[in-house]
Every structure is written in structure tokens, then in C-alpha cells.
């Protein structure tokens, strides 16, 4: 199937006090309709800026460039803001960690949902309202028709997340970008929202780009995974393959350092990754993870870092040769 979203060699640069922050450094991925790609990484790895770069929502001083950035055959790189705005919220939609990013606290929920549709489509107010009611019911808000007249603050945190999802779906987008949509929620609510997201995606054949720091969410939601570190994708591939046989030392480290029942014995030390993320201000050569990597060697400082294939579409950027399955293989 042809890819809906194709990204090649995407860079995002931000001017900061000490120079230029290379927040995203030449990443690429493709996303097919009906599939879920998870971008996973820790804070500052560039995953959120990647999402904003796709939606052309970067802060004004940030610079974006890419060898390829296409959505459904449209080149987004040179698209004027007016046409980008027409795409955004229509064929590509985004939801955020904080629902109040997209919800206007002073407007009735119904008005916002109706406007989300009528901004892009010529439909009657009544038809838009019907769709709003149907979608609110679909995302699990009981008594939808009555609640259209309420304001966002009258909804709980989990319900606001549902509201925002309904609003994103008003125009039947083909691509949904979700940036940490459940991070602020309690675990039981998080599970409910993620279930909903997965169901809706299946029903509508959405391409879902899910950005998260939580490997548990990745494992349960993703078809494809891209692990980001210091602005680069260090490992990617089908979720099953990446979790069964993580190849990059960073991916292995991430998986080893979370306590997991059955794998880690309570009270025993966890396999922490020593050190901190390097500064991305200025130029960088070689592998960005080498300072924290227990298996670093001189070759790690050379450019370019080789991209190796573990199996099929599972690839990673590291000088080390592929290791067989079983993450306990890592020291």
C-alpha cells in the first residue's frame, strides 16, 4: 500500500542562547493508512517537535527542512500556510497531552465541534450538530446531545481527552497525530482512552502517529516503532520485532530499566542508563549515545553511524552487529 505520510531527512533547528539547537537531526519514516507508528523517546529527544514539524505548527523561530515531506501525495515543504491550514484539522488532525490546547474554555463544546467541521466543509449547522452528537457518543460521552451546551471545564480530564478526540475526528481525517495523549491521565483512564483510540483507528482506517515516552503504550498500540534519541531515530521496525530483539543499546537500556513483574526481582537494582542526554547545541559527530553506552568503542565517534538491518524492516543505527532475540543478552 502506498504510504500516506512520507518523511525523509527531516531536520528541525532552533536558535538558542548558545547557538543552534539541532532538535531533530535527519529522521525519516513512512506511515500507511490504517497503521500505527509510535515515536518513542525521552524528554528532549525531538519527538514532539517532529509532530509539530509535520503539522507546520513549529514555533516561529524554529527552522524545518526535509528531503521529503509528503502527505497523500502533497508536498508539505513548499505548501503556503493558507493551504496548510486547510489541511490541518481536515485531513490531518492532532491531539495533545493537554486537551485545553485545542479546546476553547470560553466556548460551548457543541459550537467548537460544529465549527471544526464547518471550517472545512460546506454542511448545514444541523448536519454538523448531528455529526457532533454521533461522535461524542462514539467517544463514550453519555447524554451527548445535552452536553453540547456545556463548557470544557464542566468535563473531567478523561472526558476532555474524549472531547478533543471527537473534535479531531469531525472532518474524518486520514492522519491523526497524537502527542502524549494520555500522559496526564490516571492509569485506569489512560487504558480507556487508548482502547478508544485503537478502536476508532480501526473503524476509520486512520493512520495514527502516536508520540509517547511510555514503552508499555508502544508495545500495546504500535504496528511500527521508531525509537528516538537526541534528535535521531536510532532503531525502528515492526513492534513485535523491536520488542523481541531490541538491537540498539539505547533501546535495550530503556527496556531494561523499567521494573517489570517477572523480569525484575523486587528490591534489586534496576539496569539504569548512566549519564545524561548530551546537549544538541552546535554540531555533533558520530553516535549521540556513545557517552552513555556500555559497549562504546572508538568507531562510535565516526560519521556516519552505520544503519544495520536486524531482520526484514527492523533496522538500527549502531556499529554493533545484530544480536539474536532476547534482551537479556545485553550486559
Amino acid at each position: 500500500m502506498a504510504a500516506l505520510l512520507e518523511v525523509e531527512d527531516l531536520h528541525v533547528r532552533l536558535p538558542v542562547a548558545g547557538g543552534t539547537l539541532h532538535a531533530v537531526r535527519g529522521i525519516g519514516f513512512a506511515l500507511q493508512p490504517g497503521r500505527t507508528l509510535c515515536l518513542v523517546g525521552e524528554s528532549g529527544c525531538g519527538k514532539s517537535l517532529t509532530a509539530l514539524a509535520l503539522m507546520a505548527l513549529l514555533p516561529r523561530r524554529a527552522a524545518r527542512d526535509a528531503a521529503r515531506l509528503s502527505f497523500a501525495g502533497t508536498d508539505l515543504r513548499s505548501l503556503p500556510e493558507r493551504r496548510m491550514a486547510a489541511l490541518r484539522g481536515d485531513r490531518m488532525a492532532m491531539i495533545f497531552q493537554d486537551p485545553m490546547t485545542s479546546l476553547n474554555p470560553t466556548m460551548r463544546v457543541g459550537t467548537q465541534l460544529v465549527e471544526a467541521l464547518r471550517r472545512h466543509r460546506r454542511v448545514s449547522a444541523a448536519a454538523a450538530r448531528d455529526r457532533a452528537v454521533a461522535l461524542l457518543e462514539r467517544v463514550g460521552i453519555a447524554g451527548a446531545a445535552a452536553r453540547l451546551g456545556q463548557y470544557p471545564h464542566q468535563f473531567s480530564g478523561g472526558q476532555r481527552q474524549r472531547l478533543m478526540l471527537a473534535m479531531a475526528l469531525m472532518c474524518e481525517p486520514q492522519l491523526l497525530v497524537a502527542d502524549e495523549p494520555t500522559t496526564a491521565l490516571d492509569v485506569t483512564i489512560q487504558a480507556q482512552i487508548l482502547r478508544l483510540l485503537a478502536e476508532v483507528q480501526r473503524e476509520l482506517g486512520l493512520a495514527l502517529l502516536l508520540i509517547t515516552h511510555d514503552l508499555g503504550i508502544v508495545a500495546r498500540m504500535a504496528d511500527e516503532v521508531a525509537v528516538m534519541y537526541a534528535g535521531e531515530i536510532v532503531e525502528r521496525g515492526p513492534a513485535a520485532a523491536v520488542f523481541a530483539a531490541p538491537q540498539h543499546p539505547y533501546t535495550q537500556g530503556l527496556l531494561n530499566c523499567i521494573p517489570a513483574p517477572g523480569r525484575t526481582l523486587p528490591g534489586t537494582p534496576l539496569a539504569a542508563i548512566a549519564g545524561v542526554v548530551p546537549s544538541l547545541v552546535g554540531d555533533w559527530r558520530g553516535c549521540a549515545f556513545r557517552a552513555r553506552c556500555s559497549r562504546a568503542r572508538p568507531a562510535c565517534a565516526d560519521d556516519p553511524v552505520p544503519t544495520r538491518t536486524a531482520a526484514g524492516r527492523h533496522s538500527y543505527r549502531c556499529v554493533l552487529s545484530p544480536a539474536p532475540a532476547g534482551r537479556e543478552a545485553a550486559p
Binding site: V187, T188, Q190, A191, A219, R220, A222, F243
Partner: peptide, 16 residues
């Protein structure tokens, strides 16, 4: 509701 990093198990439904 705890999501352990085990692929293929989907999102559990706690029926809450």
C-alpha cells in the same frame, strides 16, 4: 490497566 511492554496483548478493558 498497567501496560507492560509486551507487544500484541492490546489494551486491556477493566470495564470501569
Amino acid at each position: 490497566s498497567v501496560l507492560t511492554p509486551e507487544p500484541g496483548r492490546g489494551i486491556p478493558d477493566a470495564r470501569l
